Amino acid sequence: MTTWIEACAADDIEQEDVIRFDHAGKTFAIYRSPDDEYFATDGLCTHEKIHLADGLVMDDIIECPKHNGRFSYKTGEARGAPVCINLRTYPVKLEGDRIMIGIGA
């Protein structure tokens, strides 16, 4: 069963950007695409556990700030060395102006 958690306000994230969200000892990254869609992944790079919210967002890619590994934030797919393990993604929905992410299940 999916549990929905309020992560932030939609306006907290600029277009083509990412923010960090911590909940229950876990770090998430919440993204806003150039098309005003919202996405969520694990917040730490699978290579060396660096916070992805400090990275660079380009189109649908998040680039890790330490070794420039790349992931698709829409699918979690590892897209550039040195990363080779995909990110976990989470469902996102808007309730009014609040971004909700689904965890569990």
Rank of each mutant, 00 (worst) to 15 (best):
E37Q: 13
A40I: 00
E37D: 15
D42F: 07
H47E: 05
T27I: 03
I61M: 11
A53M: 03
P34V: 08
H47S: 07
K26L: 06
C45D: 14
R32S: 06
E63M: 11
M58P: 00
Y31I: 09
T41E: 03
G25T: 02
D59H: 14
H47D: 09
C45E: 12
C64W: 15
A24Q: 15
L56Y: 15
E63A: 08
P65E: 09
L56Q: 14
G25Y: 00
M58D: 15
T41W: 05
T27W: 04
F21K: 13
E48F: 11
F39K: 09
G43V: 01
E37A: 12
H23P: 00
D36E: 10
D42C: 01
P34W: 03
A29M: 02
S33F: 00
A24H: 04
P65Y: 07
T46N: 06
L56I: 05
L44D: 03
D54N: 10
D54F: 14
H47A: 07
Y31E: 11
K26T: 11
G55C: 06
D59K: 13
D22F: 02
A40E: 10
K26Q: 14
I61N: 04
I50M: 10
D54L: 13
S33Q: 11
Y31T: 03
S33V: 03
A53W: 15
I62L: 09
G43W: 01
K49S: 14
